[in-house]
């Protein structure tokens, strides 16, 4: 179950970073560089803040993520988030699981707005696009533990 909700295209590609995997804000007193990991985490946190978003990442990513988090090397905040960061701009791809009953277009719009607001506010980067892929729906009954058997 996957639905592409983005209407934008990648016509506007972020400027290439001067240091490969990082972005920079240039001033006369020095350069501020924000690592991709930082932008990824900010985008992940921003997406989680929106009501109706149950989780980030596809099924496989979440399964692997749950294992890596158990052994302390995984990070839920970066799961399902992919970024391209340039000197002044960033583009974000998000894979979401949305709660059943929520409007997917509305949740996607709110996620897009919040991600742009957070990245621009925290990192000082202009966000050129936020592509949202709704990968699955969450049904509240999915995580209810099975009733214990009445007889043994």
């Amino acid at each position: 179950m996957a639905e592409e909700t983005t209407a934008s295209s990648r016509a506007k590609t972020p400027a290439p970073a001067t240091t490969g995997a990082a972005s920079a804000l240039q001033t006369e007193y020095g350069t501020t560089t924000i690592a991709d990991l930082v932008v990824t985490k900010v985008a992940g946190i921003a997406a989680h803040e929106v009501p109706g978003v149950y989780a980030l990442g596809g099924g496989a990513a979440r399964a692997i993520g749950s294992v890596t988090q158990l052994v302390g090397i995984g990070d839920e905040r970066t799961q399902g988030v992919s970024v391209e960061v340039g000197e002044r701009e960033a583009a974000v791809d998000l894979t979401l699981v949305i709660e059943y009953g929520e409007s997917i277009p509305q949740v996607s719009t709110r996620v897009r707005e919040n991600v742009i607001r957070r990245i621009e506010g925290i990192c000082g980067l202009t966000v050129t696009e936020v592509n949202v892929i709704v990968n699955d729906l969450y049904f509240p009954g999915d995580d209810v533990p099975e009733q214990p058997a009445r007889v043994e």
């Binding site: 020095g30 350069t31 501020t32 560089t33 690592a35 930082v38 900010v42």
Partner: peptide
């Protein structure tokens, strides 16, 4: 001279990654 700053990660005050 110029002071270049690279933010490598974000974390809580305890040092734990957010």
């Amino acid at each position: 001279g110029p002071i270049d700053i690279v933010f490598e990660d974000v974390a809580e005050l305890t040092g734990e990654a957010v």
